[in-house]
Design a protein around this nucleic acid. Structure first.
Length: 855
RNA sequence: GCCUCUGUAGCUCAACGGAAGAGCACCUCCGUCCUAAGGAGUUGGUUGGGGGUUCGAAUCCCUCCAGGGGCACCA
C-alpha cells in the first residue's frame, strides 16, 4: 500500500499541532525521573499482578515482532495498574546462545562483548518505545550472578536423581557441531540453522523430564480456558501418552521374555508375527545364531537404516522394508509360534523396541504383512465399510451376504470398534471390554500387565559450545562424577581469549587448561571440570522466578516472594515457544514444587500468544527484501502510532500484515484525540452531571465495556470504541454543546486514561493539557455510572410469522403483558395478522414480540 | 490421513438465539494560492454453499466447500 507518511513537520506546521517527536522528547526524561513502574515493596497492600513478556534474545535492534509482543504485554500491565493492582512487569535478556558465538567466530571477537553491546543497543530502542518495565530487576542469563543459580538448580536436580548422564544416539547438527534436544529438531532439521540433523552416539547429560510426563499432561487441566487450546493440544501431543499393556513373549532358544507394548491387547489372537527395531540390541542379539546368509542380509539392512536421515524416515507412504531373522516367538495367550522380523518401522527407543504385529487391525502391520506375504487374521468383527474395496452392486443394491472384508485383499486394516471373533474365550466381547479382560487375564497369568507409554523423551541438555552455563560437575579418576559444592558456585566461564571457538564436536572449554584442570572436591586428587555447557532453555526455564530477587547473592529466589507474586498472572509471547520453553518451564516449576521451594505447580496462569508481523503475506526478512525496519517506522510515526497500529490491526493472536495497516491513520487518530484535550476549556473541577447527557452515555458505555474487552485481549475493539468516543466528542465540541461542556472534559479525560494503555506519550500530554500532574499511568480507571448505562427508551420489534411488522418505542422496564398489549394494538401488526388465528405469542421484553399464526 | 480452529462490508473485526453494526479505507462535498492538515456526508451485505431445529439462526445441529494451525510409522 502506498501512502505518504505524515511527517511531524507537517503535523507541526501551525505550532500548536500534535508533534509526536516533541512529546516523546518532553516526557521521557520526566518518566526517567519518576520511575513510575518500579515495583513497590512488600508493604504495599494492594492486590498483585505479575505480567511477563517472554524475554528477548539480544539481537541488536528491536524489530516489529518485539514491538507487537511487548506492546501487548504493556497494555495488560498498564491496565492492571489502572485497576488498582500492584504490578510486577520486569524485563531481562536471554543472553546466552549460539548467535553470539557464531558472530564471535566470524569476527574474531569475544561473545560476551558482542552480547552486551547488543543489549545496550536494544535497550536503547526499548527506551523510546517506553514499555512500562521495572528496569531495576533487569537480568541477563549470561551474568555469573544469574548462571550461578542455573548451576545451583542443576545441582538440585542432580541430587534428586533428575540429572544424569547416558550414552545414546543423539541428534547432531553437523553445521552447529552440537547436539540438539528432540524439541529442537523440526522436520528432521536443526531449528536454528536448518541443516539436516544426523545421529551420533555420545555420552550426554539429561534431565529426567519423563518422570513428570503424567503431570505435564494432567496439570494442563488447570490451564483450560486460560491458555490457547492450540498450545494445550500441542503440549498434550508432545508428551504423547498412550495406554495399553505390556505382553511378555518368549523366544525359542532364548531364556527370559521379550515384553512388547500394545494399545490393543484385545487383538492378541490376531498376532501373526513379531517385529523388532532393526537398530535395537535385541535384533543384534537374535541374529547372532541365524544362518550366515541371514546375518549378512541383516547387516546390510542395518547399514541402510543407519544411513537414513530423519527426513527419509518421516516421509509418508514409504514401502515397508525388513529382514526375517529366522527366529520364532511364542504368543503367551495361545502358544502360537510366530516369525520374528527386523524393520525400521519399529523404533528402538519407544516402548520396548519390539512389537506384536496384528496386521488385520493395524495399518502399518498390514502394510508390512502385504509386503512380505505374511498371514493376516481378523479377530475383531468391525462391520465397518472398507474404502479400499469396491462392493459389487446387485440390481443397484448391496447384497445382504456381503463376504467379510479381508484386509489382506483390500489393504485397509480394520481399526474401528467391534466384537471379538477367533479369540477363544474372549469371543463376542466388545473391543473395549476385551481390552480390559485380556489385560486382566495377562496380569493374573503373569504374562503381562497394563502399561502406559509416552512419546516424550528425556531432555538432553549438554551442548558442546562455549557461550552457555558451565555444567557444575567435576570428573575425578578416583571418585568419578563429583558435583561442585554449592559454596563454590558460580563456575565462571573462562575468558574466550585464546580459545578456539570453532565448532569441532568437542567443547571449546576442554582446551582451557587452567580452567578445566582442578582438584577433586572429594579427594583433592587431579580432576577435570565437565567441559559442556547447558542448553539455553535451562536458563529460561526458571527466569520468571529470578525477577523476584534479581539481585540476591544468597538465594536463586526467595520462596516468600514467590508466594507473593508467582505464578505469573499473564504471560505473553510467540507461539513458536508453544512446546519447548513452556514445557521446560512447566517441568522446572514442578521440580521446584517437589523440592518445597514453590507452592504452585504451573508457572503461567494465563498465556497470550501474539501473531506474527508479516509484510506482503510473508515473514519479514532481509533476504526476501520485505523487511520493515522498526527504527525507521519509529522515526516516521513515533512510538504511540506504532503501538496503536499494532494493537488495532487485528486481535492479538492473529497475524498482522504490515501492508494492510496504516500507521499514518493511527497518527491521525492520536492527533485527533490530542486536539480534543487541547480544545477543552472547562476547569478540572466542573460538575460532570451538568454535561451533555448523550455524550456522557457514550463515555460511560465505554468505561463499562473497555475493561472486559481488555481482559479478553480484544485490544483492537477497545481502540475502535475509543475512536468512536473521540469522534462523538469532536462533534459535540464543533456542533453541539461546545468545548466548555462538562461532558467534553469528562470524555477527554477518559480518553487520556484509556490511551495510556496504547499511546502513553499522547495520553500523558493530554493529561497535562487537561490540567493535571504526571503521570496519567497512575490514574485509576473511573467506574461507569450505572444510571447512564440504561437507555431511556428502547425499540421493540414486533414480528408476525418471523417478519418484522412494526417497531415500538418503549421503556426498557416495560413488563411483558403491557408490551404484548401494545404490540397487538399496532395497526401494522393487526393488518399483518389479518383474519388468521394466533397460535403462539412469544414476548421477550423489552426487545421483541413474536406472533405466530396458523397458515 | 487424523485432530482442531476460523469463514460477517474492500480491509480488520463486533453483535446473552431477538432490528446485521463499528473503525479504517473508498467516494462526494466544504476548506485551502496549490498540496496537505482539518471538517461534513453518502455508498457498501445471499453473514462461504446447502439442509435441519426454532415463533425467530451470523449464532445451535448435520453436510459440503475454502483457509489457518497441530499431529502423523510412537505400536
Amino acid at each position: 500500500m502506498n501512502e505518504s507518511p505524515v511527517s511531524h513537520d507537517e503535523l507541526n506546521q501551525a505550532g500548536h499541532k500534535y508533534d509526536f517527536a516533541a512529546i516523546q522528547k518532553k516526557w521521557l526524561p520526566v518518566w526517567d525521573e519518576m520511575k513510575p513502574f518500579a515495583t513497590s515493596d512488600s508493604t504495599d497492600r494492594r492486590p498483585r499482578k505479575y505480567v511477563l513478556d517472554m524475554f528477548p534474545y539480544p539481537s541488536g535492534d528491536l524489530h516489529m515482532g518485539h514491538a507487537e509482543a511487548f506492546g501487548f504485554g504493556d497494555i495488560v500491565a498498564r491496565y492492571w495498574r489502572q485497576q488498582g493492582f500492584n504490578v510486577l512487569h520486569p524485563i531481562g535478556w536471554d543472553s546466552f546462545g549460539l548467535p553470539a558465538e557464531n558472530a564471535a567466530i566470524k569476527r574474531g571477537v569475544d561473545p560476551s562483548g558482542w552480547t552486551y553491546e547488543n543489549i545496550a543497543q536494544q535497550k536503547n530502542s526499548f527506551r523510546t518505545y517506553a514499555p512500562s518495565f521495572d528496569w531495576d530487576r533487569e537480568l541477563h542469563t549470561s551474568d555469573p550472578e544469574y548462571y550461578r543459580w542455573t548451576q545451583w538448580l542443576f545441582l538440585q536436580l542432580y541430587k534428586k536423581g533428575l540429572a544424569y548422564r547416558k550414552d545414546s544416539a543423539v541428534n547432531w547438527c553437523p553445521f552447529d557441531q552440537t547436539v540438539l534436544a528432540n524439541e529442537q529438531v523440526v522436520d528432521g532439521r536443526c531449528e536454528r540453522c536448518g541443516n539436516l540433523v544426523t545421529k551420533k552416539k555420545l555420552n550426554q547429560w539429561y534431565f529426567r523430564i519423563t518422570d513428570y510426563a503424567d503431570r505435564l499432561i494432567d496439570d494442563l487441566k488447570q490451564l483450560e480456558g486460560a491458555w490457547p487450546t492450540k498450545v494445550l493440544s500441542m503440549q498434550r501431543n508432545w508428551v504423547g501418552r498412550s495406554t495399553g499393556a505390556d505382553v511378555d513373549f518368549t523366544i525359542e532358544g532364548r531364556d527370559g521374555v521379550v515384553p512388547v507394548y500394545t494399545t490393543r491387547p484385545d487383538t492378541l489372537y490376531g498376532v501373526t508375527f513379531m517385529v523388532v527395531a532393526a537398530d535395537s540390541e535385541l535384533a543384534a542379539e537374535l541374529v547372532t545364531d541365524a544362518p550366515a546368509e541371514t546375518q549378512s542380509a541383516f547387516a546390510e539392512y542395518l547399514d541402510r537404516v543407519k544411513g537414513e536421515s530423519d527426513i527419509d524416515r518421516l516421509s509418508t507412504d514409504r514401502e515397508k522394508t525388513g529382514v526375517f531373522l529366522e527366529r520364532y516367538a511364542v504368543n503367551p495367550i495361545n502358544g502360537e509360534r510366530i516369525p520374528i522380523w527386523a524393520s525400521d518401522y519399529v523404533l528402538a527407543d519407544y516402548g520396548h523396541g519390539a512389537i506384536m504385529a496384528v496386521p488385520a487391525h493395524d495399518q502399518r502391520d498390514l502394510d508390512f504383512a502385504r509386503a512380505f506375504d505374511l498371514p493376516v487374521r481378523v479377530v475383531v468383527d468391525t462391520n465397518q465399510p472398507v474404502t479400499g474395496a469396491i462392493p459389487v452392486l446387485i440390481d443397484g443394491e448391496l447384497p445382504d451376504d456381503l463376504p467379510p472384508t479381508d484386509p489382506k485383499v483390500t489393504g485397509e486394516a480394520l481399526v474401528g470398534p467391534g466384537r471379538l471373533i477367533n479369540s477363544g474365550p474372549f469371543n463376542s466381547l466388545s473391543k473395549n471390554a476385551a481390552i480390559a479382560k485380556v489385560t486382566e487375564a495377562l496380569t493374573s497369568s503373569g504374562f503381562g500387565r497394563g502399561a502406559k507409554n509416552y512419546r516424550l523423551r528425556d531432555w538432553l541438555i549438554s551442548r558442546q559450545r562455549y557461550w552457555g552455563t558451565p555444567i557444575p560437575i567435576i570428573h575425578c579418576d578416583k571418585c568419578g562424577e563429583v558435583p561442585v559444592p554449592e559454596d563454590q558456585l558460580p563456575i565462571k566461564l573462562p575468558s574466550a581469549e585464546g580459545l578456539d571457538l570453532q565448532p569441532k564436536g568437542t567443547s571449546p572449554l576442554g582446551a582451557a587448561e587452567d580452567w578445566i584442570n582442578v582438584s577433586c572436591p572429594n579427594c583433592d586428587g587431579p580432576a577435570q571440570r565437565d567441559s559442556d555447557t547447558m542448553d539455553t532453555f535451562v536458563d529460561s526455564s526458571w527466569y520468571y522466578l529470578r525477577y523476584l530477587n534479581a539481585t540476591s547473592d544468597t538465594v536463586a529466589f526467595d520462596p516468600a516472594e514467590a508466594e507473593r507474586w508467582a505464578p505469573v498472572d499473564q504471560y505473553v509471547g510467540g507461539v513458536e515457544h508453544a512446546i519447548l520453553h513452556l514445557l521446560y518451564s512447566r517441568f522446572m516449576t514442578k521440580v521446584l514444587y517437589d523440592l518445597d521451594y514453590l507452592t504452585f505447580t504451573e508457572p503461567f496462569t494465563s498465556l497470550l500468544n501474539q501473531g506474527m508481523v508479516l509484510m506482503d503475506g510473508a515473514k519479514m526478512s532481509k533476504s526476501r527484501g520485505n523487511l520493515v525496519e522498526f527504527a525507521s517506522e519509529l522515526s516516521l510515526y513515533g512510538a504511540d502510532a506504532l503501538r496503536v497500529t499494532l494493537a488495532f490491526a487485528s486481535p492479538p493472536e492473529d497475524d498482522i500484515d504490515w501492508a494492510d495497516v496504516s500507521p499514518a491513520g493511527s497518527a491521525k487518530f492520536l492527533a485527533r484525540a490530542w486536539r480534543v484535550a487541547q480544545d477543552v476549556t472547562s476547569a478540572p473541577d466542573v460538575v460532570w452531571k451538568k454535561g451533555d447527557p448523550a455524550l456522557r452515555r457514550v463515555t460511560h458505555r465505554f468505561l463499562a465495556d473497555a475493561p472486559g474487552l481488555v481482559e479478553s485481549f480484544k485490544f483492537n475493539v477497545v481502540i475502535a470504541r475509543l475512536m468512536e468516543l473521540v469522534n462523538v466528542t469532536r462533534k459535540v465540541i464543533d456542533t453541539g454543546a461546545g468545548p466548555a461542556d462538562a461532558a467534553v472534559r469528562e470524555a477527554a479525560e477518559v480518553t487520556a486514561v484509556a490511551l495510556n494503555l496504547f499511546a502513553p506519550y499522547t495520553a500523558e500530554d493530554m493529561w497535562e493539557k487537561l490540567g493535571y500532574e504526571p503521570t496519567v499511568a497512575k490514574v485509576l480507571w473511573r467506574k461507569a455510572d450505572p444510571t447512564l448505562l440504561v437507555e431511556e427508551s428502547v425499540t421493540c420489534v414486533v414480528q408476525v410469522d418471523g417478519k418484522v411488522r412494526d417497531r415500538l418505542e418503549v421503556s426498557p422496564k416495560i413488563d411483558s403483558d403491557e408490551l404484548e398489549k401494545q404490540a397487538r394494538a399496532s395497526a401494522a401488526v393487526v393488518r399483518a395478522i389479518g383474519d388468521r388465528e394466533i397460535v403462539n405469542v412469544v414476548v421477550r421484553a423489552p426487545r421483541v414480540v413474536s406472533i405466530a399464526t396458523r397458515k
